[in-house]
Design a protein around this nucleic acid. Sequence first.
DNA 1: CGATAAGCGAGACGGTACGTCAAGTCTTATA
DNA 2: TATAAGACTTGACGTACCGTCTCGCTTATCG
Lengths: 223, 223, 223, 223
Amino acid sequence: MQGASESARPAPVGRPRNSQIDEAVLCATIEVLEETGYHRFALEQVARRAGTTKPTIYRRWPTRQHLVLAALAGRLGQLPVPDTSCTICDLAECLSVFAAAFQRLPPDVLGSLLSDCADNPDLRAEFMNSLFDPPRRAVEQTLLRAIRRGDLRSDLDLDLTLDQLGSLVHYRALFRHAQTTDAEIERAVENMLCGIATDYPALVEHNRRLSAEAQAHAHHIDG
Amino acid sequence: MQGASESARPAPVGRPRNSQIDEAVLCATIEVLEETGYHRFALEQVARRAGTTKPTIYRRWPTRQHLVLAALAGRLGQLPVPDTSCTICDLAECLSVFAAAFQRLPPDVLGSLLSDCADNPDLRAEFMNSLFDPPRRAVEQTLLRAIRRGDLRSDLDLDLTLDQLGSLVHYRALFRHAQTTDAEIERAVENMLCGIATDYPALVEHNRRLSAEAQAHAHHIDG
Amino acid sequence: MQGASESARPAPVGRPRNSQIDEAVLCATIEVLEETGYHRFALEQVARRAGTTKPTIYRRWPTRQHLVLAALAGRLGQLPVPDTSCTICDLAECLSVFAAAFQRLPPDVLGSLLSDCADNPDLRAEFMNSLFDPPRRAVEQTLLRAIRRGDLRSDLDLDLTLDQLGSLVHYRALFRHAQTTDAEIERAVENMLCGIATDYPALVEHNRRLSAEAQAHAHHIDG
Amino acid sequence: MQGASESARPAPVGRPRNSQIDEAVLCATIEVLEETGYHRFALEQVARRAGTTKPTIYRRWPTRQHLVLAALAGRLGQLPVPDTSCTICDLAECLSVFAAAFQRLPPDVLGSLLSDCADNPDLRAEFMNSLFDPPRRAVEQTLLRAIRRGDLRSDLDLDLTLDQLGSLVHYRALFRHAQTTDAEIERAVENMLCGIATDYPALVEHNRRLSAEAQAHAHHIDG
DNA sequence: CGATAAGCGAGACGGTACGTCAAGTCTTATA
DNA sequence: TATAAGACTTGACGTACCGTCTCGCTTATCG
C-alpha cells in the first residue's frame, strides 16, 4: 500500500524529469573528471558531453560540488561489509574493498572537493557521509564485533585505530605515494594487531626510567 | 684577483631584488589564505595587501601554486628531530611537533594545493618535498634508529608504518575529523608498538583454521 | 510545409541578445573616445559606463577596433548624396556634409584606428568601407554624372581628383591644421573646376621651351 | 648681454655621452617600426637591438613619441626645393621628392604617431614642424614665387591649394589607397592649374540661374 | 481537450580572476 | 656622471568559467 505517498511527494505537476539525463550527467562528470582533473573541470564540458545544458544540471544539483559528490558516491556504491568470525580476515577484506574503490578515483579529486566543501557545513557533512565515513564505518563495526568477541583490547581508542587503518584508504588515495596491495593490507593489519616492537614491556620500562632521571635532573637544577 | 668568484654566483648585475617584498608577499599569502581559504584565494588580493602588484609576484614564483607552497613551507620551517635513546619518546615527540605545525595550517589548503599540483610533476615533487616528506623523514629516522637498536622488528615495512603513524599528521590535517592531542599521540604510539589484539597468536591460529575449512568446502563443492 | 521558412533567418534559438546593450555600448564608446581619446581608451571603462562587462562586449565585437569602427560608422550614418543638375552645388554639398560629419569625430581617432587596422586586411577593408569610402563614393558619383553631362573633361583621372577634393574631408580631419567652412569648400570647388593659373597655355609653352633647352644643353655636354 | 654665456656650454663634466648610442637607437627604431609597425612597437625591443637599455633611451628622448618623431624626421632629412623659372616643373618636382620620401615610411606610423601627439601641444607642434610642414613649405614657396611671377591668380587661397596638392603626399601616405607616380603628379598639377571643367563660365551661369529660381520658389512658398 | 506547469536546449548575461604585456621610473654596480 | 642591467609600479589586455536569466519549445497532468 502506497498510502504512505498520500501526504508524501508534492504532486508531480508539469513535465516530469527525464531520468536518463541524470545518468548521462553523472557519467559525463566522471569522464570529464578523469580526463581533465578537478581543476580544469568545466561544467560546460559535462553538459556538452551529456548532451544537455548547464541550467538542466543546476536544476538537479545546486552546485558543482554537489554534482561531483553525487557522481563519486554513486561510483563507490554500496560496498559489502564482511562478517565472518575471523577478525583478521574481516579487517583485511574491508580495507581491501575500499582501497580498491578509492584507488579507482581520479587522482586530484578528493582533495579539491574536500576543500571546496570546507566553508559549507552541510556540504562538508555530505562529503564526510558519502566519501569519508563508509569505509570507516565498515572497519568500525568489524572492530566493535572483535572487541565484543574479546579479540581486541577493550580500552581501544576507536577513532585513533580507524585512522591508523584508514590511512591505507584515504591517505594513500590522496597522496598516491605508495601502492596498496592485498599483501600490504595484510601486513598492516598484522602491524596493528600485534605491534611492531620486539619487546614492548622493555621499552616501557626504559622510558619510565628515563623520565624519572629527567625529573631528578630537573629537581637538581631547580634546587 | 677576484679568486672570490671561484664559487661565482651569477654576478648580481642590475637592480637587486627587494627582499622585503618576498617577505611581505609570503606573509600576505598566509593571511589571505587564512581569511578566504584556498578557493577564493586571489593573487590580486595578496598583491594589494603586500603593497605590490601581480607582475612582481609572478617574477618570483611562476604560479600561484609555487607561491602558496613557498609560503606554507616557510611556515613549517625546520622542525627539530629529537634523538634520545628512548624510542617511545622520540616517536611521540616527532609526531607531536608536526601535528601541531600542520594543525596551524589554513584548513582547506592542503587538499586543494595537492590537487593543483597533480598534473605538474615538478610541482608535485616540490609539494611532496616541502610539505609531505619532512614529518615522514623525521619519523623514518627515528624508526631506523630504533631498528638498529633492536627495539623494533627488523622486518618492518617502513612505508606502511609511516602511514599508520603519519595519519595523525597529514590525514587529520586534511579531514579535520578528530583532535590530535599529545595524549592521543602517546596512545597511537602504544597501539603501534604493542598492537591492539589481546592474544594475537590465537587470532592467527583461528584464521588458519578457517582458511583450511574454506578450502575444504570449496573442494567439496567443486567435486 | 515549412516552405515559408525557406528564406527564413537562421532561427533565433537561445536567449536573444539585448539590443539595448548594443546601443548603450556604442554610445559609451563614443563618449569615452571623446573624453579620453583613442589612446587611454579602455574597454573596461566603456563596459562600466554602458552598465555591462567586457565579455559581453567581446561577444559582439571581436576586437576593440571593430567596436570603435562600428561606433564611428554608426555616427556617420547614411549621409545623403545630393543630385541636382548643378555640378557646382552638388560637389559643394557633398563635401560640406561629409566635412561636417568628420569634424565632429574625436580628434585622434581616425589615425590610430587606421593604424591599428593596418595588419589585418579584413579589418582594414572594413575601415575603408565604412569611414573612408562613403564621402569618396558620393563625390565620385557626382563627378561621373557631371562627366556624362559634359560638364567635366572626359579624360578625368577620378582617383586623383577625388583626393584633391577629399583632402577637405579626411586630410583635414586628421591633421586639423585648418578650418573647413562652406565658403572654403566653394573656393576649393572653384579651384578644382577652373584651375588656379592665370594663363595655363602660356605656362605649358614656357615649360616646353625649357625642356627643349635642357635637352639641348645635355646634348651639348654629352657631345 | 649674454655674451658670457656664448661659450658657456653646460660644462661637460662626468662621463660624456656615447653618441654612437644615439645613432644606434634611431636606426633600431626605424627597423623595429618597419618590422612590427607602430602598434606592437616596443621600446624594449629597440633597446635590445641597439645594444642598450630603456633608461638610456629615456635619458635622450622624453617619450616614445619623441623618439619615433626624431627617427622619422632624420630619415626625411633636408629635402631640396627646386627653383627654376618654370612653375609646372617646380611644383611637380617638389611633390615628387616628398611623395617618394613619405612612401618610404612604415605604413601605419604617420597616423598613430599623429594621434599619440594629439593631447600634448608641444609634441604636436614638433610633429607638424618635422613631418607635416616641410613639403607644404616647399610647395608654398613655389606657389608664392609663381604668384609674384604672375603665373597664378593673385587671390589664391594658399592653405586650400596646399591641401589639394599635398593630398598626394600625406593623404596617400596615410591611407595608401592609390599609387603616386610621377605621371600622376604631373596630371595632378595640370588639374590644379587649368581645372577640370570643360566650360567653367557656363557652369557658373547655370548655377546662378538655379539659385535665383530656388530663391523665387522659396519666396513663393513663404508668401 | 485545452489550460497549466514544469522540463528542456540554447545561449546571453553580469561577474570575477586569470596570467601576460609593455610603459615609464627606480636603484644598483661599473666604467 | 653616464651606462648597463634589471627590478619595480601601474594599468589594461583578452580569456575562461562561473552561476543565473530569458527565450521558444516539448511533454506531461489536471480541470
